[in-house]
Amino acid sequence: MSAESTLLYLDGVSVSFDGFKALNSLSLVMMPGEMRAIIGPNGAGKTTMMDVITGKTRPDTGTILFEGDTDLTRLREAAIANLGIGRKFQRPTVFEPHTVWDNLELALKAPRRPLKTLTYAISRDDRSRIEEILDITRLSALRNRQAGSLSHGQKQWLEIGMLLAQDPKLLLVDEPVAGMTDAETEQTAELLCSIAGKHSVIVVEHDMSFVRALGVKVTVLAEGSVLAEGSLDAVSANQQVIDTYLGR
């Protein structure tokens, strides 16, 4: 398959740590506007895959192209992020000393160069965009609270909010609903579905009901490479997947 017209194109990507292959010739393709769920056992390499896409880890071999022509393996993290790839970490990390509002303001799509931020003054548009995100993430009442004092679930929401504020073309979301209530999980699924279409989304999650609620194509990762791909029902019927992941 050619890389043209794809948003993200991974081909034969391998990463090893001290001889241990975390990714083993992984190939994956995302189209613009697509949402994809990725599941797989612990240590399958899901987080490592995100590391490789966002520049945190350099692959030993393989190609990673963004929008068909940009080679991500050569870029640094910040440059990759500025291409329009946003990431939510497995462990929620928000800027604890800052208020909720400031966290969103920092994430908001705006020039990132130091001299630009030094002279930055918030515009009316930016303000209303932040308000909007506060609404979506239900954090309006907490806007002046310090992010460090939020609960785990609230931090998850804040991180999702920051991802939205960044307005990336591709969102990489690592276990977004860990620590959320069932209701919140449902809301998150709705939210992600609503942004798909405009954005492409890759969601990593162990929560099967959440994945089902997303209702999108599923890729099963195991031992660093793709085991199966298709609808959730199709992959859950796959004997190999049952053996390595779903189990029992």
């Binding site: 993290e77 910040a78 992020a81 500025n82 990390t93 303001e105 160069r113 130091p114 930055y120």
Partner: peptide, 29 residues
Amino acid sequence: VIGSKLGKVLVALRDAESRVRFMGYDTES
């Protein structure tokens, strides 16, 4: 400087530098 958005970026990167990087800020500069 501290009161500007740049200052907020500095404080943010003090505590979570890689997170700031993944948000597109070139923390080194």
